[in-house]
């Protein structure tokens, strides 16, 4: 089986109750509620190969989570078909659940008042894991996730990062073929995020697990995923390799320069360069690499002023999305 997930023409709408104002509005909506239909997922199709790491990104409420929840069988689609590992998630929810794992950043699954080990034992029962197999798996995961010391402490006493590591472990005990991670790093600091990203990558490499990740944080997705699906207003607006996304929408390089002495104005005389922000002695320049070579720009800068520091970076992926969403392009104003 080459494709582990196949989604075709998937749509989902939600009904939202409209409430009037004040007491009369409340009474009216009690007896005769009015509804508004909101399309959360609008006719999307895609498929995922085994071992892929796919990132779903988009602003809050774009429909990422709704799409994932239909793939795992939580929500029923209004239209379209889904096949995950050959199962129909709605009709064969239980069978499918043995083979997939889910981590929902905002919906913890561990018992708050009990140590994680108690929850793990429970999950072993839920997944019908034989004792020896479970213990072997648990030992492996405990080493991988470095949680030896916290296994016996009540979850309420753990830090956010420790908790999330345990949450992920709970979803991996049954060796799932696909893992769905919905906003796994929400509310976490940089170090914890980094650790979690590493763990996801390691899992993919070692166990060939297919990984579906959603995030509204682009750095997560950029770092982890080789393929990106961008969703906005329930529609897929981009689906392709992360690298390609960069090439298509990222024909820009950004040059940061700190000059040795105070500089008020920078005149390069180049058509395809834009000065983005001007500090006292700091400049940021956007270069359209389709028309201008970065090297040439740097040479020009160096010839004008004494430079203390210079860095060349890609613009953050947020801007790519913005460009995709708004179809806005940088000007080609000459500076």
């Amino acid at each position: 089986m080459d494709h582990v997930i196949k989604v075709q023409n998937l749509s989902k709408r939600f009904k939202i109750k409209q409430k009037g104002k004040g007491v009369s509005g409340s009474i009216k909506s009690f007896f005769a509620p009015e509804y508004k239909l909101v399309t959360a997922v609008n006719n999307i199709s895609f498929s995922v190969k085994q071992g892929e790491i796919v990132g779903f990104i988009g602003p809050n409420g774009a429909g990422k989570s709704t799409a994932i929840k239909m793939m795992t069988g939580i929500l029923y689609p209004d239209q379209g078909s889904i096949s995950v590992l050959g199962y129909d998630p709605q009709q064969q929810r239980q069978e499918l659940a043995y083979h997939i794992g889910t981590v929902f950043g905002q919906k913890p699954q561990l018992w708050y008042h009990l140590p994680p080990i108690d929850s793990f034992n429970l999950f072993a029962a839920i997944y019908d894991l034989p004792k020896s197999e479970y213990e072997k798996r648990l030992n492996l995961l405990v080493r991988l996730f470095e949680v030896e010391d916290i296994l016996q402490q009540p979850v309420r006493k753990l830090s956010l990062g420790q908790r999330m590591r345990c949450e992920m472990m709970a979803s991996l005990l049954h060796k799932p073929k696909i893992i769905f991670l919905d906003e796994p790093t929400i509310g976490m600091d940089i170090l914890v995020r980094k650790k979690i990203r590493e763990l996801i990558k390691e899992l993919n490499e070692k166990e060939k697990t297919t990984i579906i990740l959603t995030s509204h944080d682009l750095e997560d997705v950029e770092q982890v995923c080789e393929r990106i699906v961008i969703i906005n207003n329930g529609k897929i607006i981009y689906d392709g390799p992360t690298v390609k996304l960069r090439e298509q929408y990222l024909h820009w390089k950004r040059i940061k320069i700190i000059f040795a002495k105070k500089t008020n104005e920078l005149k390069l005389g180049l058509r395809y360069c834009t000065v983005l922000n001007k500090g006292n002695d700091e400049f940021e320049i956007n270069v359209d690499t389709r028309h201008e070579r970065v090297q040439k720009v740097i040479e020009r800068i160096m010839s004008l002023q004494a430079v203390e520091d210079i860095t060349i970076i890609d613009p953050p992926i947020e801007e790519i999305i913005q460009e995709l969403f708004q179809k806005r392009h940088y000007g080609t104003r000459k500076i």
């Binding site: 929840k69 795992t72 069988g73 939580i74 929810r93 239980q94 069978e95 499918l96 659940a97 043995y98 997939i100 889910t102 929902f104 919906k107 699954q109 839920i126 997944y127 019908d128």
Partner: peptide
């Protein structure tokens, strides 16, 4: 509150 997700993600009769 959407907390049935937990049960619906697990392989037991919900």
């Amino acid at each position: 509150e959407g907390k049935l997700d937990f049960y619906l993600n697990l392989p037991k009769e919900e």
